[in-house]
Design a protein around this nucleic acid. Sequence first.
DNA 1: CACCTGACTGAAT
DNA 2: AATTCAGCCAGGT
Length: 118
Amino acid sequence: MASAFFEKVYQVVRVIPEGKVTTYGHIARFLGESRSARVVGYAMNASHNDSSIPAHRVVNRSGVLTGKHFFAGSTLMQDLLESEGIKVIEDRVQSFENHLWDPIKHLNQEDFIQGLTG
DNA sequence: CACCTGACTGAAT
DNA sequence: AATTCAGCCAGGT
């Protein structure tokens, strides 16, 4: 079991809809830790312990696949995204904002955290 | 035990 | 507008 923050991150990542992506910053902000975007990324690094976490749907604020290096091979992350209908060119998600899934807009922040802790 | 690094980001210079 | 700095947490050296 990872830290509480890691768990929250995982919970959010797990509910990202197929064919959608979000960013480290959005997740951090959604969790009320807008300054911990970096830790979100670090949580993803540790997410290799759990295969149920679609880490490929998390990119940086520019839609760049900064974490692809941590996937097997050099195109697995891109391949996964493209298989969900997201076009990726040179490690960048095309029409990024169009595919962006903002947890702050699609989830109820308080309820989510309440349900998580309770 | 202290210090450094890392899938980030926003503010300041 | 581009570069630098600070903040967050965990794990490795």
